[in-house]
């Protein structure tokens, strides 16, 4: 088993921390993991992306130019990463702010309106967990109990009271994700 994932969006959307939770969940499931951020002068509002690899064998390159799954959270990332999904792979995106929707017919496309849902939940910060839930529904790379364990170890203890809210957001994401026919 090997899953190569790119998560891309704006800085401040929780792209890096979503990747971190996924990576931690992988550790809990006894997988090999790598988490490679696009670090740089990016900050809130700029672009941010992270490559996460989960594998049951040794991971070679942490840097990739082709992915099993692309989780795309803004238009710039759509323009850049839609073409980098392997044929037969997964593209999951949030429709918010997307002006040109994905067009490829050789991949599986899913949409989750996480920004909208987070607003409904009165907690915009749960956005990335809704997206994570949507992804786990499509592809259960890590089991839910390992995700919860991963969430717990990646969050500092002072934020542990937020664990139930995050779990709720993950569940909500699982419920609202839908496949898109191109």
């Amino acid at each position: 088993m090997k899953e190569e994932i790119i998560i891309a969006g704006f800085g401040g959307q929780g792209v890096l921390s979503m990747g971190k939770i996924l990576a931690y969940s992988g550790v809990m499931q006894d997988l090999e993991v790598s988490w490679m951020p696009s670090y740089g002068p990016e900050m809130r509002g700029g672009t941010a992306n992270v490559t996460v690899i989960l594998s049951d064998s040794r991971i070679s390159s942490p840097i990739l130019h082709e992915f099993d799954t692309a989780i795309i959270l803004n238009q710039q990332s759509m323009d850049k990463f839609e073409e980098q999904v392997k044929p037969g792979g997964i593209l999951l995106y949030d429709g918010n702010g997307i002006t040109r929707h994905p067009e490829r017919k050789d991949i599986n496309i899913y949409r989750v309106d996480a920004a909208e849902e987070a607003a409904k939940m009165h907690s915009t910060k749960t956005f990335n967990m809704i997206v994570l839930g949507a992804y786990l529904k499509i592809n259960e790379v890590v089991k839910m109990d390992n995700v919860l364990k991963g969430l717990k170890s990646s969050l500092p203890e002072r934020h542990h009271h937020l664990l139930p809210l995050n779990e709720k957001a993950i569940t909500r994401g699982m419920e609202i994700v839908s496949e898109v026919e191109v």
Partner: peptide, 10 residues
Amino acid sequence: DGVIGQMMEK
């Protein structure tokens, strides 16, 4: 280098 410095692994 920046890759090994910034990446997370077990």
